[in-house]
Design a protein around this nucleic acid. Structure first.
Length: 288
DNA sequence: CGGACAACCTGGCGGC
DNA sequence: TGCCGCCAGGTTGTCC
């Protein structure tokens, strides 16, 4: 599931090969369906001849600034973005949805088995992007700013972390990882947190995401780097896992079997020992 | 604001 | 072996 670390890895992996190139043509092998925000033929006509000025990331969106427009790509579940030579095939080509011809002879391809991904072209990206919270790894995201955003919130932490309008880029994997690192139960509510817990959560979010980037993303199932290889983060996950592939997953801190539950319609993984629903009165007293 | 739920999709898995 | 049915998940939209 491409989240901030996975999308960041894709952006970094494509930047050198893409920035400065000019898009000569766009081809849609199959009907675009809901994938694009405008008619596919119109999109193809508009990108033609535009140079890629920069490649960046906002939340889970890949942002390609072109001469006159901005190309926004969201991988959602199974989207993949990669550059190949025209005759060079890739397993992901089975689900190819867009092919951009570049002026250096290469192709930028977008494939997507589940068809949830989005390819958007606009001259006003702010007007079509949804409300997005702060970037957790930017310097503006301070502990004070995070605490201020939490103030007044009452929802459960797991759902809040997944809310892109609250904080950008966190998805199901890294929400569970961050909550385990912070030793907070997924069902704890925002208004129940002490200052110390807010601080733990703040650092845990950043640490979980930074580790994910260092490991170049988690290839639990569909995610691959632009070169087609897997990331490494799936080998370092603390609680998140696929129970069918990984039975007997245990907490790295205490060895307790990881528990799973559903929170806000999302599979949720946590350590029942490290992540209590609430501190017990005895423990709270003992800790002062 | 927040929770619940449906919808979008389809590969891959469990179950039989 | 083969077929059926369900689940996964990011996001949006609806409803209360």
């Amino acid at each position: 599931m491409p989240e901030l670390p996975e999308v960041e890895t894709v952006v970094r992996g494509l930047r050198e090969a893409l920035v400065g190139r000019t898009i000569l043509a766009a081809e849609f092998p199959k009907p675009a369906g809901r994938m694009t925000n405008i008619d596919a033929d119109l999109l193809a006509a508009r990108v033609q001849g535009q140079r890629v000025r920069s490649l960046s990331r906002r939340a889970k969106y890949i942002v390609a600034a072109l001469d006159r427009d901005t190309l926004l790509i969201h991988l959602r579940m199974t989207g993949r973005l990669y550059i190949r030579e025209p005759q060079q095939s890739d397993p992901a080509d089975a689900y190819l949805r867009v092919r951009f011809a570049l002026n250096d002879g290469h192709e930028l391809r977008f494939s997507d088995a589940r068809k949830f991904g989005r390819v958007l072209l606009t001259d006003a990206p702010d007007s079509i992007l949804p409300a997005l919270g702060p970037e957790p790894l930017e310097p503006e995201f301070t502990l004070e700013a995070f605490a201020a955003r939490l103030a007044g919130r009452k929802g459960v932490l797991k759902s809040l972390l997944l809310n892109q309008a609250f904080i950008a880029g966190v998805g199901n994997i890294y929400a569970d990882e961050a909550l385990n690192m912070a030793r907070l139960h997924p069902l704890r509510t925002a208004d129940s947190l002490s200052s110390a817990e807010i601080k733990r959560l703040y650092h845990a979010i950043q640490q979980a995401l930074e580790t994910g980037i260092t490991m170049q993303g988690a290839s639990i199932n569909w995610y691959r780097k632009p070169d087609g290889t897997k990331g490494e983060q799936q080998q370092h996950l603390r609680v998140y896992h696929d129970p069918r592939q990984e039975k007997d997953k245990r907490c790295p801190e205490c060895g307790t079997p990881i528990q799973t539950m559903t929170v806000g319609q999302r599979g949720t993984h946590f350590c029942p020992k490290c992540q209590k629903v609430r501190r017990t009165a005895a423990k709270a007293h003992a800790k002062g």
